[in-house]
């Protein structure tokens, strides 16, 4: 099929962004990742006849296991490697970097704030994990988070650098919280109240966007139970 690809370009964090539009023939089963790779492998021109310089973007696994390739595709945050042209139900494809993070180049954004936030809430175990039948499924599901940032992109309350940290923090935290043995005071519990519980509007926009299908609502309610209502798993 014939498609029109519109890509938001930006050479550096301080330079002005612009859009570049390309007409292309492609199979409807093509993923956005393949589309970008193909464009990058060829010397092509945009509709104004200007050359399309290599598009900067990040990828790694190409099978929705690493979170590298998250971007806005027709306005929705998704993984490029897991989005087929056919799913977009449109002949025009617009690729833009995630909006909540500073742009590095083209489709690459700097998501380091997500790591900083996990550091800030002390997201680690302070003693040996307590595991039982009750928490294994939760630990598994929460551990699947690929730190892509799609949930933050749609969260009405998240702004990079501010005090509310969103699902990308509470999903990993829910694993640790579920594995903390009862009876001690944990920094994570304290920080959770400050950076998650008090700022979350529970609208759950994050829940449906997660590209790996983590049951975010479940993680939120379980973490709240432990961190706020002190209902430890053991």
């Amino acid at each position: 099929m014939k498609i029109t690809v519109k890509i938001k370009r930006q050479n550096s964090p301080d330079s002005a962004p612009f859009y570049q539009t390309i007409h292309r023939e492609c199979d409807k089963e093509t993923s956005v990742a393949t589309l970008i790779r193909e464009i990058n492998a060829e010397n092509i021109s945009d509709i104004e006849g200007k050359p399309v310089e290599e598009i900067s973007w990040e990828c790694s696994c190409l099978q929705k296991k690493c979170g590298a390739c998250a971007m806005r595709i027709n306005g929705i945050p998704r993984l490029a490697c897991d989005t087929k042209i056919a799913e977009l139900k449109s002949k025009s494809v617009t690729l833009e970097p995630l909006k909540k993070f500073p742009v590095v180049r083209d489709l690459i954004v700097d998501r380091s704030v997500m790591r900083k936030n996990l550091l800030a809430i002390h997201n680690w175990l302070e003693s040996e994990a307590s595991q039982s039948e009750k928490n294994v499924d939760l630990a598994y599901d929460a551990s699947r988070c690929i730190q892509c940032g799609c949930c933050l992109e749609v969260c009405p309350n998240f702004t990079a650098g501010e005090s509310f940290f969103g699902a990308a923090a509470f999903v990993p935290a829910s694993r640790i919280l579920s594995q903390l043995p009862k009876g001690k005071k944990y920094d994570l519990v304290k920080e959770y109240g400050k950076h998650i519980y008090s700022g979350c509007g529970k609208s759950l926009s994050c829940h449906n966007i997660c590209p790996v299908g983590i049951d975010i609502e479940h993680k939120l309610s379980n973490s709240n139970a432990v961190a706020v209502w002190k209902r430890f798993f053991k």
């Binding site: 002390h122 680690w124 551990s143 699947r144």
Partner: peptide, 27 residues
């Protein structure tokens, strides 16, 4: 999903030492 599970646990554990200044990350 064994690799992902090992990595999540190890990343969190190394984070603890990152907070103590023992590991400096350069992603």
């Amino acid at each position: 999903s064994t690799g992902k599970m090992l990595m999540t646990a190890l990343i969190d554990e190394v984070r603890k030492y990152e907070a103590r200044g023992m590991v400096t990350r350069y992603p």
